[in-house]
Every structure is written in C-alpha cells, then in structure tokens.
Amino acid sequence: MGKKLNPMGIAVVIFALVLITMTAIRLTGMGSEFPNPVGQAMHRILVPLERTIWYIGDGIKDNLRAIFSFRTVKAENEELRRQVEQLKSDNLELKQKILAGLRYEELDKGVFQSPTLDKYEKIGAVVINRNPTAWYQTITVNKGSKDGVKVNDPVVANLGLVGKVISVYPTSADILLILDGEGQVGALVRNNKGKAIYGVLSGTYKREGRLTSSGSLEMDFRQDDEVNVGDLVLTSGLGGVYPKDIPIGVVVGTRLDPSGLLKTALIDPIVDFDSLEEVYLVSIPEGS
C-alpha cells in the first residue's frame, strides 16, 4: 500500500517550482553574467568536437557545390584560359601598380574602415556552431574570455554589423545575431538629403523559402519621416552597446501601419548571415 499523496502538498510544490523557474529564467537572461562552471566545462569538452564537425561539413559542402556546378565551372575555365593569354601581356605593365597596391594593402588589414571602430581593438574569430536550438539566432565562435572577449562586445563582419556577445566561456563565446527579435539595435537611417532619422531596429527572425533560415530586419518610423528604398541604415551609437556608424543594411521597402501613424521600413542586412564563417569581436574598454 503506497503512501497517500496530499493534493494540497502537491499544489504547493508545483507552485514553488514554477515560481523558482520563472525567477531563474529572468535572472539568467541574455547578457546576464552568473557563475556557470558546469556550462564552461561542457563547452571546453565540446568545442573541439564541434569545430571538427564544422570543418568537415564545410569541406563536404564546398566539394558538393563544385560537383553540382561542374558545367558552369568547365565553361568558366575555358573562358578564363582565353583571358589568361590576354592578361599575360598586360601583366608586366601592371606589375608596378601591383607593387604599389601591396603597400596599401598593408595598411588595410581586411576589416572595413570605420572611424569609430578603428580606435578599438578587434579580435578575429571563426564560427564553430550555429543556433544550438531552433528558437535562437545565435552563433558560437572560437574566442573567449582568455582572448579578452566580454559580454556585450559588438561583433562585426568584413561588411557590417553581426550582433553582440551574450555569453563568454574561456575558449568560446555566444553571439546573438541582430536578426533575432531578442536583440535590438539603436539605429539611424540616412536619407538622400543626408538627414539622419533615429529609431530602433529589431530582428524578425522569420522563415522564408525552403532550405534557408534567413531572418530580416525592421524599423518603425513616424509616417511623415522621409525614408526611401535604398537608404542606408547605420548604428546610431545610442543604447551603449554598439559604436556609431557601423553599417547594418539597406532599406528595401516600407509598409504602412493600419492606424496610419507609423510606417515600418524593411531592411535587408548587408552581412550574409547564412555563409558567415569569420567575424571580428570589437573589444570596447570598460567605461568608454
């Protein structure tokens, strides 16, 4: 004969569990720092495994692409052979210019040039994991607190803004992409007269066609704000996380709010998030 369960006791236990869970979820949200030695140990074990799978997967993907586009590659090859002959003759003349070009390349280290970003140190990192669950738009990179990465550090690719660091482990870090609705960015749109209109940009993380997991970006404005297709969207520097003037995307359309007060600009991000392989973590000193 088993012990009889007290319904009141069960109800109290369930209520307490729900309360504790809700509190824990709120306290350990995005960007919060709390001691997590177990999580860090698991990351230390899994990062080498994840990196290996990632490299193998990329290799297979690249090779498959070459096989499927064999005809195009062959035609391209023949065309290129013809061009090589032509180029050989131009080559000598251009060598002088190439040498000059190489000197300039020394100055340009590959990251896009932005006056606000140039003064910060940038850490190059490789993507080793994407979206551990279908509910977040995050990536994991192979640099962590040992390399000086901190929570809330902005992340850029060679063309524009990628997101911000939300968790840091000794040898890896999680980055929330701007496509995710959880992360919002203080942004501005420069219209064709050069006037800046400020707003908050947020990710929609919607799914589009098959085999793509692309999200998109949206920004709300007053209806009389002059925002047009083709306008460039940059970070505004307001909000404390992202430095000013990092390119984010281009306005591709506007949609009127049914109430007639607002309009929403649809923004196409400059960075191709689906094929992102390397990023730069911008190290912003404390208190700057």
Partner: peptide
C-alpha cells in the same frame, strides 16, 4: 546530442528547423 544540432544539423536544417 547537445553538439549535433548546432553543427551537423545546421547543414541538414529545413527552413531553419532542426
């Protein structure tokens, strides 16, 4: 099981679903 969704199943995801 923890590490595969973010790595192997990134290539095998269907409309972002894994």
């Amino acid at each position: 099981a923890l590490s595969l969704p973010g790595t192997l199943f990134h290539y095998l995801s269907w409309a972002g679903i894994k």
